[in-house]
Amino acid sequence: MLEIKNLHVAVEGNEILKGIDLTVKPGEVHAIMGPNGSGKSTLSYVLAGKDDYDITAGEVLFNGQNLLEMAPNERAVAGLFLAFQYPIEIPGVATMTFLKTALNAVRKERGKDELSTPEFMKLVKEKSAKLNVSQEMLRRPLNVGFSGGEKKRAEILQMALLEPALCVLDETDSGLDIDALRVVSDGVNALRSPERSMIVITHYQRLLDHIVPDIVHVMARGRIQKTGGKELAKELEAKGYADYVGEAAA
């Protein structure tokens, strides 16, 4: 599914990622944990294709394609989805309109027929109900004045509609209370399948009580420092990141 080899990334001359290697197979859920400033969000943005990052070395293959040469929309069409930590406001564009435009843009490029308005409404109604997204919220401009929980639910709704092969969730738990966390996690878990992979980026272990990963990586100082099973997350919860950050001083 995804193969990252020796990825080095710099921003304005500062190296943020210093050689990342990561292989994600179909159906696997990987968690990347790490302290602030370790390069977790940079990795998610680089995967989605944001500008402002210099790839100084390495390559990323997504289902055999060279991901780094693709435009962000081509990556979306190929099946990559990034749930943003801070979703962006689009004033004046109703959430419903945005969802329909995005879904039909992707369907068209994937060689499928665009959905008619009634077909789309039926689909969105079904998916939004599971995520506690009201019709009223769908009429509001996307992310404008949304609460933290609403923004994250809207992200997961987009993910559910676009049916990606690889979901990258960047700090999806930030800004969520316990109830919202459960709704969002349930939404994510419903999307788990043997064909779909996920990379869950988080600072805290609590999200991983809800979205249970197959593999956990600890990232610090621009590298993956340790890889293990889900028990690794528990260990981090107890001991913190001190072991990994501490090496910097040594």
Partner: peptide, 15 residues
């Protein structure tokens, strides 16, 4: 903003 453009494109829209 570049952020708005990136967000929309990451959902599959062309520029």
């Amino acid at each position: 903003s570049d952020d708005q453009m990136f967000y929309c494109m990451s959902r599959g829209l062309s520029d």
